[in-house]
Design a protein around this nucleic acid. Structure first.
Lengths: 185, 185
DNA sequence: ACTGTTTTTGAGCGATCACTCAAGTTATCA
DNA sequence: TGATAACTTGAGTGATCGCTCAAAAACAGT
């Protein structure tokens, strides 16, 4: 997963994969079927891990919106230069951009994952609205897409050679934007 | 340029390039030196074209902020499904994500282009502040980075299989966010 | 210890990769 | 028209791509 995340689908050769897994080609193909199959499992594992992280950030805050803002800040911390992450950008987005016009199966998988995330965010925001955190008129599905686009932008932006402090500021500005959707008390 | 934009650096083979250029390998290498060199020129051409588009949108509006908002909407229109663009996502971002851990020279070029765009946006926002469009306390460089991240997010988001109307809504929400930074009269 | 099954190994497959260069063609002079 | 220069051609280079499979090794049951 780390190798694919770092180098992308085409950028990771079977030789490198053999080394990363400490497996010989025969075993790899007996286990995963193909490079596509292996990548697919890696991407699924990545998505699962990401989902877990989001749920952890939410569990740490009683307020959903606070949890989402914390999530933004945490992404900024992880995506800052000098971190040990294989890549600062999101593996799903990297995959979507790489595979969209070259590998339909993989592009579909990335699409599905992003759909699931969008849905999860929508559900969360609906719940926040019910709890009175969000302004009553909020269009939750639309805000979920905005939030997803922000996260995609934040993490892709962080792939630039840039100071980590500026990534943190960016996350802060995005978190501040969420405040505008809060219910007025 | 269109081929590289659509399929990425690794995804475009020399055979496909030969066909796209209607040139044989010898001529290609005599003209561009290497696949890297050719890609570099394609990326530079893309960046120039993008810069021109931004300037056109700005020229169409007397207000800088209005021009930027128009630019966001226009990006959404271009990045909508069904368009004739080779790819909905930005070629510079695609390149940054693909090349960051595999091709230092190309990644540097993408970085430079994004630096230049960030600087151009900063200059524009500074000018808008001077003209009283932006709130006096606005941190223009920081807002420029936010704007750039939004655009990156918008165009990458648009690479998903999604209805064009939702892309337009997303651009609208991002434009609305810019309004919060306007000077109060 | 012996047999049958499962798993691992790594040399090597055909295909394709980016790229080269001698030979051929075209353009530009007098 | 003929000599020179500039450019184009495409078969072919070695390297690497994803992948296969017969043989070897490890494991499991009696």
């Amino acid at each position: 997963m780390n190798l694919f995340w770092e180098r992308g689908y085409a950028g990771a050769s079977m030789k490198q994969i053999e080394q990363a897994l400490d497996m010989r080609p025969g075993s790899i193909y007996a286990t995963f079927g193909s490079k596509d199959g292996l990548f697919s499992e890696a991407l699924a594992a990545y998505a699962q891990r990401s989902g877990l992280e989001l749920r952890e950030h939410l569990a740490g805050n009683s307020s959903i919106l606070d949890g989402l803002q914390e999530h933004l800040r945490c992404i900024a911390r992880q995506a800052s230069p000098g971190g040990e992450s294989p890549s600062r950008a999101c593996m799903v987005v990297k995959t979507l951009l790489e595979a969209s016009n070259t590998n339909a199966a993989i592009a579909n998988q990335a699409n599905s994952i992003l759909n699931a995330i969008e849905q999860a965010l929508t559900d969360l925001l609906e719940q926040a609205k019910l709890q009175g955190e969000l302004a009553p008129g909020t269009h939750c599905a639309r805000l979920a897409r905005l939030l997803q686009a922000q996260i995609i932008g934040l993490r892709s932006f962080a792939q630039r050679e840039i100071r980590s402090e500026q990534v943190a500021e960016l996350a802060e500005d995005m978190a501040a934007m969420l405040d505008h959707y809060r219910a007025r008390h």
